[in-house]
Design a binder for these strands. Structure first.
Lengths: 344, 344
DNA sequence: CTGTTAGCGCCTTCAA
DNA sequence: TTGAAGGCGCTAACAG
């Protein structure tokens, strides 16, 4: 590794002091520098292909230009949309975004937050689902508190158990309304493809859905709820299992905890020679944009993830440091499409 | 912003020198520290909720634990898949990933690389498409060279004009084979939905496709090629325009430069009362995973993006510093599905 | 307006 | 094995 060009090199090359070089390049507040010298310094910097060391700047300035985003899995379209929103806002403020994926492991999440704290990130947006895991939650809380004490700004998406600025996604209520809508369309017997119990988002959706169906006089029996990973393959396997166990008999609608699972479930149905919605209806959750134009169009709950991402970063950055905890609640919009037509 | 806890605080609290504290927490090579002292230091660190300043460490160590990934748009499923691959490999090496989006602007791309260089990122994976823009290409090259000279590791995905380790995606040849396949299925008159000319990936695909059709004796006339953004809406608008201009008459297949556009195109067709594939066939490029199970299933070219992302980071990290430039070529796999059935 | 002088938080020779 | 001291690259008083 060849030696890096430092500010001292630039200063020497331009025949000025490092202080002047620094000011010429980055303009200390209030201070100004002779145009001619400035030009010399800039020429020197260009000539030497100088790159300021952002780490050194961070040490002395005590702050960075980085914001951190923590999600489960960046390949999840929902998370990607949220990330796009975060990145967009970051760009308007000349901030760069570090994304880390927890792969749904609570300890990995803690480690990522820890890492972001070490980097002295300007802000952290925590967007993975809350885990139903008290131990890691404790460590996460500690880490976050330490970060905030040191001046860090945090916003949390969907983890409404932390004493921090929060954008709460009403998974429970939205799923409940979806169920009510389906019931009003004539559906009476539902099956549910749920995600791992550890993941609160999924649990909330399932709970809400079942409550909604029950409220409409069509409760979902426990044996009709299958647990699987929140992935396409998880949906496929769970759906296949549902069929193989004979649990699908009499069921008129299957609710999957997210759209990705729903797609897998539809594939499984097709592979078993069943048609959607003729033989059984399917509904999902998230309203993934790439799926919107697809047939049969999926009934789902729309969440404006990109907007949420943008708002979350704004919230983290702009809230007063000693602001009281604010909770913004986002309600999902039930979108009925072809996959759940009215039942005669 | 309350004062951060520093290593000196920890050392004082534990009653040792900062040197010892440093060694106890991070274990300098070769040096070892009394277990009892180590325990005291660790207790102090925990007690004070100490977080090492990664920036200060980076300054003195001259290297960081960050890798940078530059893509066009993280919400693009293809880019998200690649990012997942990068993140996965990074995780196994205890590296964290910074993702930045260029939004298809060449200058933004340069700025992001510059920023990554300032951070002294350990490696950079450049995965946006090459731009057909000599000026920014020059600046990009300079920046990258400066980065490499300083010990930075770079891998490039799909930009095969840079003298760097490259994973080249054979857009041209793959599109050509797609065209040949379609021709062999009986398609004779194609229209093309192309992306902006600035974006080389799209251009290569379009060029290859047209060459393939021409090679099969069914050339695509220039007026059948429409330019639009590489988005769902771009595809929708372009397709609508194609119909409105009467250009679709006699056309039996529409090729979109990526799957996302193809989806938009299909939506436009549907909105105009046309059926896929009965009235016109459609093909895309990328084989986005969320679309695989969707009907009508889209004929496309599969690119193993997650794998590519993983390989790219591996290539960047593991290549010898003075390695000669290596070029790995990835060939897309033509996947024929329902959207382009054999034509009688 | 410019240069000199202190640091920022940390790691790592160098002596002890 | 431990501690004191110097330095990493940079910015920010403080003089001049």
């Amino acid at each position: 590794m060849a030696d890096q060009v430092t500010l001292a090199d630039v200063a020497r090359w331009a025949g000025v002091s490092v202080a002047t070089a620094s000011r010429a390049l980055h303009g200390s507040v209030g201070r100004t520098v002779n145009p001619e010298l400035r030009a010399r310094v800039q020429a020197a910097a260009a000539e030497l292909n100088y790159s300021p060391n952002a780490n050194a700047q961070a040490v002395v300035r005590g702050t960075t230009t980085t914001v951190g985003l923590v999600v489960h899995d960046i390949a999840d379209p929902s998370a990607a949309a949220l990330a796009a929103g975060v990145i967009e806002v970051a760009a308007t403020r000349n901030l760069i975004v570090t994304i880390s994926a927890t792969l749904s492991d609570p300890l990995t999440e803690v480690r990522h937050v820890e890492s972001l704290r070490r980097q002295r990130a300007r802000a952290i947006v925590l967007a993975g689902s809350r885990f139903n895991d008290p131990e890691s939650a404790g460590r996460l809380g500690e880490e976050l508190v330490g970060y905030a004490v040191g001046g860090g700004r945090v916003a949390v998406v969907g983890q409404h158990r932390l004493p921090l600025r929060t954008i709460e996604i009403d998974n429970d209520g939205s799923a409940r309304r979806l169920a009510a809508t389906l019931a009003s369309l004539g559906y009476r017997r539902a099956a549910v493809l749920a995600g791992p119990e550890l993941i609160a988002t999924s649990e909330d959706r399932v709970t809400g859905f079942r409550a909604g169906m029950a409220g409409a006089g069509a409760p979902v029996p426990q044996e009709n709820v299958l647990v699987a990973p929140l992935t396409r393959d998880g949906g496929y396997v769970a759906m296949t299992e549902l069929i193989d166990l004979g649990l699908l008999d009499g069921v008129d609608v299957v609710f999957a905890a997210n759209d990705v699972m729903a797609v897998g479930a539809m594939a499984a149905l097709r592979d078993q020679g069943l048609r959607v919605p003729a033989d059984v209806a399917v509904a999902g959750f998230d309203d993934i944009s790439t799926l919107r134009d697809v047939r049969p169009a999926l009934t789902t709950v729309r969440l404006p993830m990109e907007r949420i991402g943008a708002d979350a970063l704004g919230l983290a950055l702009d809230g007063l440091p000693d602001d009281e905890v604010t909770v913004t609640r986002v309600i999902g919009e039930v979108v009925v499409r072809e996959s759940t037509p009215p039942r005669s």
